[in-house]
């Protein structure tokens, strides 16, 4: 059972309080009427299913009711960071690969690095520089 850091509440809470909402960073076409049926179909139905780093949207359903994003490793179930809506992940499949090649662990902190926003230093103690 996951232990998830809610970037709004500022603390880790049990998975039971949260609900996953699928892939993060989907962009709804600004003018749906101008896109082709195929493009609209891609937006509606097609999702990534990566082995490894994945960005997911979750909601703190039984907490603050806020949606936020999680960077999660789908093979180890490690949550590498959580960040509010509107922000971009600091860890991606590309950066993780580079770090891996450099022999740097993507995230220490045992099994979860919380609130990996660079400015969030107090929550960020366990993130490698």
């Amino acid at each position: 059972m996951f232990y998830i850091h809610c970037p709004y509440c500022g603390e880790r809470r049990e998975e039971e309080e949260f609900h996953p909402n699928g892939q993060a960073h989907l962009v709804r076409p600004a003018d749906p009427d101008s896109v082709s049926d195929e493009e609209w179909g891609d937006y509606l139905f097609f999702r990534d299913n990566p082995r490894g780093i994945h960005h997911e949207m979750w909601v703190h359903r039984l907490g603050c009711r806020k949606f936020f994003n999680i960077t999660r490793n789908t093979t180890t179930y490690e949550i590498l960071e959580t960040y509010p809506m509107g922000e971009q992940p600091t860890i991606t499949a590309e950066t993780a690969k580079v770090r891996h090649e450099q022999g740097v662990q993507t995230a220490d902190g045992g099994w979860q690095t919380v609130g990996a926003r660079p400015e969030n230093s107090t929550l960020n103690e366990e993130t490698p520089s």
Partner: peptide, 11 residues
Amino acid sequence: LEWLELWHQTE
């Protein structure tokens, strides 16, 4: 309710 929040918060 969650659906309303979803669209308000994300879009």
